[in-house]
Every structure is written in C-alpha cells, then in structure tokens.
C-alpha cells in the first residue's frame, strides 16, 4: 500500500525534487493514527451524549399553515440567503449568488495550479494577514451594509426621511417624494427596493420614447420598457417565449444593479488595496482573500439573520427579538 502511495506522488517530485522520504519519517498507522481517530470519536460521542442529555431539540406546536410565525426563519445555514432576499432580487439572493459562490469554490484549484505552499497552514508569505484583513473587512462591510438597508432603524431611513411624502397636498411635480401607504406614518427609504417602489421624481426629457409630458417620471415612465422583438409569441416545450416581455428599469436598478455593484465594488476595492500594498501577489493570495471574504460574509449574514432580525424582518437588537407564533 505504501509503495503505491509513493508512486502516485511521483509527478510532484518531478516538478521540484524534494528530499527523499525516509522510513524514519514515517510511523505506523496502527497504533499512531488509529488511536488518535479512536480518541476523537470517543470524545465526540461523549460530548454529544452529554449535550443531548442536557439540551433538548426544539419542538414547537404542530405545523399550522394558517398561522405564520413572525418572523419565520430558515435554518441557520440558509439564513444568510434569507437575509440577502431583503436587499436584492430574489433570484440573485436565493439562487444565482449561491450558485456563483459554489462554482467559485469548485473552480479554485483549476485556476490556482501552483503546487507551492501546500500541506502547511497559511503557506504563503502574507497568508495570515491577508486572511485576518479580509475577514475583518468582510464583517465590517456586511455590518455596514446591513445597518444601511432593510428596516425601520437603518441609516438609509434616517438619511432620507427629509424627502417629503407624495401624499402631501403641496407636492409639486419634479421634486422627489416618497409614497407612503394609506394611513401610515411617513418614513424614509426602508430598503434599496424602495427606490423603485416608493421613490418618485421626474426630470425634464424630450418627448419621445413614450414620454409625452416633457418629463421623464420615475418610476412610471420606465417600468414597462418592451424588449426588442417583443410579442413574438412562441412556445418551446413548457416555456413561453418573448411574449409581453417588458423590462422594469427602476426595479432592475434597485434590486439588481445597485446591490450587486455595491458588493462587487467593495470586493474589488479590498483586492485592489491589498494588491497595491504589496501583500497580494499570487493567485493563491487572491483566492485567500476571496475565499475568506465569502465564507465570513456567509457566516456574518447568518448571524444578522439569527440575532438582528425581528418581526417583519426589521433590524433590531438581539435582546429585543420576540417571535409572534402566529
């Protein structure tokens, strides 16, 4: 068995000759490794037995489709996706970004093909500081973005509260205003999504492309822009093609362009800075930054979802969370 193992490792030796593997460097798997594995298994078994004796798994009331708990939350490892749903288009948050992240993970070894630095923890010169900096950066950016977006207590709301309500009588055409729901108190932008849903303004614009009052009104004039060759209806299998396909520009801006370019912008910024500082030199370094940032953001978003989202998914402090069981 050991002979085969060394034969498989031969190509690596060809790239750069390494000191001969010596028998004295090796130990027997039984007992040295088997013993460690056995102890690890025993320790974990005892730990989880004890944990299970003292802490019970939750069991709430019987499922009732009529009663929606507020808030209702996904399991913790998917709470980050649920958190993203508040900030951007649901297809991006729930499906596309996770798919891209997994594709990114899978593609790492096919892009970073150097064999240098394997088998040791943080095997490049600046690996540790790159990891620490990108982890801290990821936490700070996630925290900052969340504190700006989605909720009644966000900075975005405070900073935009001055924008008048569209419901006020004295509202003139042209000035920006915010739609408030009937009978609700006036609030600023509660989330980026409000830019397409509640914000209204208009800019002078020549009378063409569907504009007929010398003003381009946001979002009214832009929310049904037909795509080229619109209304050539047809079916391929169960898919309806090209029938009544209109682009909602304000919604695309608010739910896709703004959030995604913000995230991409912060990612590019840290990579650029670390490159200019001189810490980021190889593909391995680049991947350390990206991998760390993605994983930490995943965790941080889960924490936000677990501890900082209360009724109506509003941003609150952990000690204020109350669950309305429905």
């Amino acid at each position: 068995m050991a002979v085969e193992t060394r034969a498989a490792a031969q190509p690596a030796a060809k790239a750069r000759p390494r000191p001969k593997r010596q028998r004295e460097e090796e130990v027997l798997v039984w007992p040295d490794l088997v013993f460690v594995e056995f102890i690890a298994a025993v320790v974990f078994t005892i730990t989880f037995l004890m944990l299970s004796v003292f802490i019970n798994a939750p069991l709430l009331n019987r499922a009732n489709p009529e009663l929606t708990p507020n808030p209702s939350k996904a399991p913790w490892y998917f709470l980050n996706l649920q958190e993203l749903l508040l900030h951007m288009d649901k297809a991006w948050a729930g499906v596309l970004l996770p798919t891209i992240a997994l594709g990114f993970f899978a593609s790492i070894p096919y892009v970073d093909r150097s064999r240098a630095g394997q088998g040791v923890w943080f095997g490049s010169k600046h690996a540790v500081r790159l990891t620490l900096v990108s982890a801290a950066y990821s936490v700070i950016i996630v925290g900052a973005l969340v504190s700006f977006d989605a909720g009644e207590r966000t900075y975005a709301e405070r900073l935009t509260r001055w924008i008048p309500s569209c419901n006020a009588e004295a509202q003139h055409q042209g000035t920006p205003c915010l739609q408030d729901a009937e009978g609700e108190e006036h609030t600023g932008l509660l989330s980026t999504k409000d830019i397409s849903k509640r914000l209204e303004f208009s800019v002078p614009w020549p009378n063409f492309l569907g504009v007929d009052d010398s003003n381009l009104d946001w979002p009214r004039d832009l929310d049904r822009i037909p795509v080229p060759f619109n209304n050539i209806c047809g079916n391929v299998g169960s898919f309806h093609l090209w029938c009544d396909m209109n682009l909602n520009i304000p919604s695309i801006m608010a739910e896709q362009v703004i959030p995604l370019s913000t995230v991409a912008g912060f990612a590019v910024a840290i990579i650029y800075v670390l490159f200019r500082v001189g810490w980021l030199r190889t593909k391995r370094d680049l991947f350390i930054v990206m991998f760390t940032a993605v994983l930490v953001a995943y965790l941080a978003l889960s924490m936000v979802g677990s501890f900082f989202r209360g009724e109506g998914q509003n941003l609150i402090w952990p000690w204020e969370i109350k669950v309305d069981e429905g």
């Binding site: 009663l67 649920q82 948050a93």
Partner: peptide
C-alpha cells in the same frame, strides 16, 4: 412537522 419546520421550509420553498 412543527411550526419551526413548516415555516423554515416555507422560506426555502420561496427561495427555490
């Protein structure tokens, strides 16, 4: 099949 289960999976159902 308790409230926790149903509504957590409902969130996942929406994401799917």
């Amino acid at each position: 099949w308790d409230q926790l289960a149903l509504w957590a999976v409902t969130v996942g159902h929406g994401i799917g």
